[in-house]
């Protein structure tokens, strides 16, 4: 997807949003995280040209941008599927069956955790506690939480997602 976009395009797309973010902080460096988040919302990932665009828009070294992008796990540095499934496998979810759900998802999608289906529909990732342990086991689908899951509920969810074309907005 990123092939056709030039540095100028990206800078134009992000300029207004980045300027608004910049105004919230006394230093431009603080606006790196929000700027990357804007880029990811817009393009679904962050990569080389985005780092350069953010660095030029904020007038900070590009390495500062890359340092941040590579530290925080919510920044996707490679293309993900149209839907990102993040299954919590931490303790409270594990005690309520997340291992079986992970197995089920891997079988149904024919991928391992960390991979994307060949049709580009789904990326599956196992994640740490999502802070919703009262409804364990929990799956985050794009920006939304789904709790109290069973394999049956998962099947219904997957079927409804297969019909949806794009990521839900945050």
């Amino acid at each position: 997807m990123s092939d056709a976009r030039s540095l100028t395009d990206i800078k134009r797309d992000l300029a207004t949003g980045v300027r608004q973010m910049r105004a919230r902080y006394p230093t431009s460096r603080s606006a790196i995280m929000p700027a990357l988040e804007l880029a990811q919302q817009k393009y679904g990932q962050v990569e080389g040209l985005t780092y350069q665009a953010v660095s030029e828009l904020l007038d900070v070294p590009e390495i500062w941008v890359f340092e941040v992008a590579s530290f925080y796990s919510l920044f996707d540095r490679s293309q993900t599927g149209r839907h990102h499934l993040r299954l919590c496998t931490n303790l409270s979810c594990m005690l309520r069956g997340s291992d079986a759900l992970m197995q089920h998802l891997q079988n149904r999608l024919a991928i391992k955790s960390g991979e994307t289906t060949s049709d580009g529909a789904f990326t599956l990732t196992d994640v740490e506690c999502l802070g919703a342990c009262e409804m364990a086991p929990v799956l985050m689908v794009d920006a939304r939480y789904h709790g109290d899951l069973t394999t049956d509920k998962l099947d219904v969810l997957l079927a409804s997602l297969a019909g949806q074309p794009t990521k839900e907005a945050t």
């Binding site: 902080y25 230093t27 603080s30 995280m33 530290f71 796990s73 740490e128």
Partner: peptide, 21 residues
């Protein structure tokens, strides 16, 4: 907004994160 790092709950790490590090 944080971006997926438990350690940022530690207060000095949280401040580093707001500083864009």
């Amino acid at each position: 907004k944080g971006a997926g790092a438990y350690i940022c709950g530690e207060e000095t790490a949280l401040l580093e994160s707001i500083e864009g590090k």
